[in-house]
């Protein structure tokens, strides 16, 4: 096992959104801080830093992770998907369009984390009920929308029709 003293940094290499990236982190550096301030991927947002609000959610080796509750060290060698990596594949454009049309976002601060959860969720549960969608969304706090637009947008995209 490698030991790092206080203030010592080591290079962390990982694949982010399909691209090999690397940067330096201390032992205590949070993955959220590493992504934002070391890799300059500012689309990941930090809302509570105690793992409740879900704003900082990313996909880490095919699993959802709160990047504020994950150390950068844990991501060494990992594959990470952030909001910047959601593009034109799968149902992502349809999801963005539906979110916009249904008013599923306002300030947009929580939205990055929500979209990553939705991507992961629909991969594992392609035809969810509204109740299942709401349960999934319970991992995210949104203070603007009342969630209704998100539920509608996700249900619509899951059904594959506008």
């Amino acid at each position: 096992m490698m030991r790092l003293g206080l203030g010592e940094r080591r290079r962390i290499s990982c694949t982010v959104n399909g691209v090999a990236r690397s940067g330096f982190a201390e032992g205590r550096t949070l993955l959220s801080d590493f992504l934002r301030h070391e890799l300059n991927l500012y689309g990941t947002h930090v809302g509570c830093e105690h793992g409740v609000c879900g704003a900082c959610t990313v996909i880490l080796d095919s699993r959802l992770a709160r990047s504020c509750g994950t150390l950068a060290m844990q991501a060494d060698g990992a594959e990470i998907t952030t909001i910047e990596g959601l593009g034109d594949s799968d149902r992502e454009p349809a999801l963005r369009e539906a979110f916009s049309r249904h008013g599923a976002l306002q300030c947009g601060f929580c939205t990055a984390g929500v979209l990553l959860s939705v991507k992961h969720f629909l991969q594992h549960n392609p035809k969810p009920s509204d109740g299942e969608i709401r349960d999934m969304l319970s991992g995210h706090l949104c203070r603007c929308t009342g969630y209704e637009g998100m539920v509608r947008a996700i249900a619509e995209v899951a059904e594959g029709q506008p």
Binding site: R36, L41, Y42, G43, T44, H45, V46, T82, I83, E84, L86, R96, E97, F99, S100, R101, L105, G108, F109, T111, A112, L115
Partner: peptide, 18 residues
Amino acid sequence: PRFEDEALMTGNARFIDD
């Protein structure tokens, strides 16, 4: 639909900590 949305949903909207 809001013109603000696309940047917010692609990680391109800049907030104070950015």
